[in-house]
Design a binder for these strands. Structure first.
Length: 729
RNA sequence: GGGCGCAUAGUUUAAUGGCAAAACGUCGCAUUCACAUUGCGAAGAGUCUAAGUUCGAUUCUUAGUGCGCCCACCA
């Protein structure tokens, strides 16, 4: 029966074996937990990108959830932690495109269908790698319920959501200036833009007034866009220009009349206080043009070449060639007042390194006013509670100023819009002589629709939905919605979610309003915005800066428990963490200390069967350690409840090392008897339970060893009951 | 540009309206005892600056300085 422990704890002998033991037990799956009539506790994993690999942020986030989930499971809750992966539209498309480029293949060569097939192949091969890495951390989600945002069931959820919004009249098609990459020939999202500070030039150009009474000088960094100017705007109360508002200017080269308009968005202190307005090629200018009903001249095409609308002078030239030609011409005309040096941020396409060209295009939008209201009300009524609380206010403010959501993307990888187009025709209406009807340009439908008037075929929209459109449905789409499943009834709404602060708007807010809209309940009771992990110097960890630490490296060097310890020990409150490896070292030492305490207990405690009578003759030291343990265990239970995992771990560390090991164990060596043995055994085994959520591997290994050594009746530590009584029943 | 946060021993952090605590590091001593991945002990900061509130401020208020994070992207 006796099982020996090595004098030092070696994580490599243990972690893989123990993880397998847990997985084989099935206890990560709440349906397989022993016991009945349990209250549920559910959490959704923030799905990592299909292309992602484990970083410190994932590690902190998922270890935090794991601590909570393991504690709840031990407290008797029917605990579900549902994992999944996000298809990550552009990121995945990029990775596969890059792969193909090595073989000199462009995605356009393959065509959409073949290319998407390639991504699926890639997904099958590499898409699960990040979960192997998660497993190394020792986290305990229910892998049997793993979801992917492009699973057939999930696709249905996305379509159902789209159609619901469409039927409510909240989805519309409109023209907007979006970020366009002339090299990739697609619209790209704000997230795929990289701003680089650059030293450029600012050109001051004179636009003559039609009445020849003078000029207005505008400042621009992109003189070529003047070919598409529709107006010059000034602030309505700008004294310099006040009396010119409403007058006309001659746009040089184009020789077109453009008005001087007044708009509040103009900063009178910047440049000359007069701004040239190019509606089709600048986001703010476009918005101004809507307010003033200005024409939109498309002067640059999708490849970054000047169009015929730009005029014969520059047609066919690339933008930079055109710029030079324009500058020369203005200079010749005496309209170039001056050229200054100017440092500004230039938008680059993250993937191709090309300068982003804002461009007018047709996109699909989701109206936000009603949905934002739903989220605001839920936050106001505290249906969802934020930690720290300030994020509720920050989110509310963001919701107040929210713009309609551009949900379409010109990508191939993702949820294709359930929208179908066909050539609208004007045809005589049957049975009504002389009556002409026009069929609709598009229809919204999951399968190909039939036109009520003509028999022309419909073609599905090539656009896909923004990745966040599908992630917004995560808390219920993963449980089977729009079906009425048992899981949905049992686990929705979830109890808790944690995320990094940068996706508060992109993800958390959208899940809240989606939950209210489709489930009539917020998707989670608590949102915990966790700390960000910085380098020891207080800088952001980033791959491109080479400042990141690889959690797998830490696990390899010190073990998973030590890595978890190092992360959580430094995570006090929601303050950002300047991560230092020292604490991981301390974690490794701590694991070893526990390991050796177990060895000590096994040499001292002869049997785990104690007669009832022994409790009567406790020594002062026995009583003290019992009392002290009682107190610390309550505190730790409370700390976990309020998500103060770092504080709880500090207390466990101090208690175990300094009170239990340094003091009680030393005393126990000097006092013999059954009472001592029982106290040693009782406190040790119970503290193992409290330690388990934080450092699961070493505690489970010790538990299994004690089990075989003493032959006492127990299963796995992961389902041992917390403090000998269950909360969740 | 908007928002948010931080500032305490060499380092990373803790605490408190009334003697500033710990870990790591450093130094010394001990120990073949479950653990040298150990134990005991020592040195080491008066809490970024200025003003205010107060009997009293490291703590509260205001301003400044420094560092950092997030969002937006501006002619």
């Amino acid at each position: 029966m006796t099982k020996e422990l090595n004098p030092a704890y070696n994580p490599k002998d243990v972690e893989e074996k123990i993880y397998r033991l847990w997985e084989e037990s099935g206890y990560f799956d709440p349906d397989k937990l022993p016991g009945k009539h349990r209250k549920k506790f559910s959490v959704m994993m923030a799905p990592p990108n299909i292309t992602g690999s484990l970083h410190m942020g994932h590690a902190l986030e998922n270890v935090s959830v794991d601590i909570l989930v393991r504690a709840k499971r031990m407290q008797g809750f029917k605990t579900l932690w549902l994992p999944g992966i996000d298809h990550a539209g552009i990121a995945a498309q990029n990775v596969v495109e890059k792969e193909l480029r090595k073989q000199n293949i462009r995605r356009q060569d393959l065509g959409r269908e073949k290319f998407v097939e390639k991504i699926w192949e890639w997904k099958e091969k590499y898409g699960g790698l990040i979960f192997d890495q998660f497993k190394k951390l020792g986290v305990s989600p229910d892998w049997s319920r793993t979801r992917f945002t492009l699973d057939p069931g999930y696709v249905k959820a996305v379509q159902a959501a789209f159609i619901n919004y469409y039927e409510k009249g909240w989805i519309y098609r409109g023209e907007r200036v979006i970020n366009w990459c002339p090299k990739c020939e697609t619209g790209i999202s704000d997230l795929e833009i990289e701003y680089r500070e650059e030293n450029g030039k600012i050109y001051h150009i004179k636009y003559p007034l039609t009445d020849k009474s003078g000029f207005i000088t505008v400042a621009t960094t992109r003189p070529e866009t003047m070919l598409g100017d529709a107006a010059v705007a000034v602030h309505p109360s700008d004294e310099r220009y006040k009396k010119l508002i409403g007058k006309k200017l001659i746009l040089p080269i184009q020789e077109r009349e453009i008005p001087i308009i007044a708009d509040h968005s103009i900063d009178p202190t910047f440049g000359t206080g007069a701004v040239k307005i190019t509606p089709a090629h600048d986001v703010t200018d476009f918005e101004i043009s809507l307010r003033h009903d200005l024409p939109k001249f498309r002067i640059i095409d999708g490849k970054g070449v000047m169009t015929s609308e730009a005029g014969a002078f520059c047609e066919g030239l690339k933008t930079d060639e055109c710029r030079q030609k324009i500058v020369d011409k203005l200079s010749e005309l005496g309209l170039l007042e001056k050229v200054g040096d100017y440092t500004h941020n230039v938008a680059y396409c993250e993937r191709s390194g090309t300068i982003v060209e804002p461009r007018l295009s047709k996109q699909w939008f989701l109206k936000m006013s009603e949905l934002a209201k739903l989220a605001q009300e839920a936050i106001e009524k505290k249906e969802t509670v934020f930690y720290p609380e300030k994020w509720a206010g920050i989110l509310t403010e963001w919701l107040q100023n929210i713009k309609d959501w551009n949900i379409s993307r010109q990508l191939w990888w993702g949820h294709q819009l359930p929208v179908w187009f066909h050539e609208p025709k004007c045809i005589p209406r049957k049975g009504h002589e002389g009556d002409i009807v026009k069929c609709k340009e598009y229809a919204v439908s999951i399968t190909e629709p039939k036109c009520e008037f003509c028999d022309a075929k419909f073609v599905q929209s090539e656009d896909v939905l923004d990745t966040w459109f599908s992630s917004a449905l995560w808390p219920f789409a993963t449980l089977g919605w729009p079906g009425k499943t048992e899981d949905l009834a049992t686990y929705y709404p979830t109890d808790f979610i944690t995320s990094a602060r940068e996706i508060l708007n992109l993800w958390i807010a959208r899940m809240i309003f989606s939950g209210k809209e489709f489930m009539e309940a917020v998707p989670f009771k608590t949102v915990y915005i966790h700390a960000t992990i910085l380098t020891r110097e207080g800088k952001r960890m980033s791959k491109s800066l080479g400042t990141g630490i690889d959690p797998l490296f830490l696990i390899e060097k010190y073990g998973a428990d030590a890595t978890r310890f190092g992360l959580i020990y430094q995570n006090l409150g929601t303050q950002d963490i300047r991560f230092s490896e020292e604490h991981v070292v301390a974690g490794k030492k701590f694991c070893n200390k526990i390991w050796n305490a177990a060895r000590f207990v096994m040499t001292r405690v002869k049997s785990a069967d104690f007669p009832e009578t022994t409790k009567k003759n406790l020594s002062e030291a026995d009583k003290q350690i019992h009392a002290s343990f009682e107190k610390v265990s309550e505190e730790i239970t409370d700390d976990i409840e309020v998500l103060e995992f770092g504080r709880a771990l500090h207390k466990l560390y101090d208690f175990f090392w300094h009170e239990w090991a340094d003091k009680y164990i030393e005393t126990s060596k000097k006092q013999a008897g059954l009472e001592t043995e029982e106290t040693l055994f009782y406190v040790f085994t119970n503290i193992l339970k409290l330690l388990h959520p934080f450092i699961p591997f070493v505690t489970e290994e010790i538990w299994q060893t004690l089990k075989s050594h003493y032959g006492f009746k127990t299963d796995l530590l992961i389902i041992e009951s917390w403090l000998n009584h269950d909360h969740g029943i």
